[in-house]
């Protein structure tokens, strides 16, 4: 399945919807989309992962790069609605405590909207960790 991305604005937040398998063959294209958005003038970026059925370390690396870019610009960067298998990759790599990961896209948009400073890691129940 080819990787598809689409973007939309929700107030001051940009939501990037990703569909397909994120892997080495398409990671560069996703990196281009996310880095350009993460460094743009909006205050927050939400990545909707509900349509992502597979992610490898290359894809995780792309998300790490986008997170770093967003933080450099003082923007929120929130992942949303990851499928169980995708979430497991974050768990294994210990990155659940690094990324903000919300169960639903509306939750993620609300979180990114409220964040005035780069958001910190979220625990499994979505509560912010200090």
């Amino acid at each position: 399945m080819d990787l598809k991305t689409s973007s939309r604005s929700e107030g001051s937040v940009v939501v990037v919807e990703v569909q397909g398998e994120i892997e080495l063959s398409n990671a560069a294209r996703l990196r281009e989309v996310l880095l350009s958005t993460a460094g743009a003038g909006q205050c927050g970026l939400v990545v909707d992962l509900s349509g992502v059925s597979f992610i490898d370390s290359t894809g995780i690396g792309v998300l790490v790069g986008a997170l770093k870019r967003a933080r450099e610009h003082g923007h929120a960067f929130v992942l949303a609605a990851a499928q169980r298998r995708v979430r497991r990759v974050f768990e294994i790599t210990g990155l659940l405590g690094v990324f903000s990961l919300c169960e639903t896209v509306p939750e993620a948009i609300a979180h990114a909207t409220e964040a005035q400073v780069p958001v910190r890691g979220l625990s499994d129940n979505g509560a912010a960790e200090e």
Binding site: S57, G65, T93, G94, G97, V98
Partner: peptide, 14 residues
Amino acid sequence: PHEHPVAELHESGL
């Protein structure tokens, strides 16, 4: 990788 601060995380090597 979670043993490193975000700014020091590498995008490859996982």
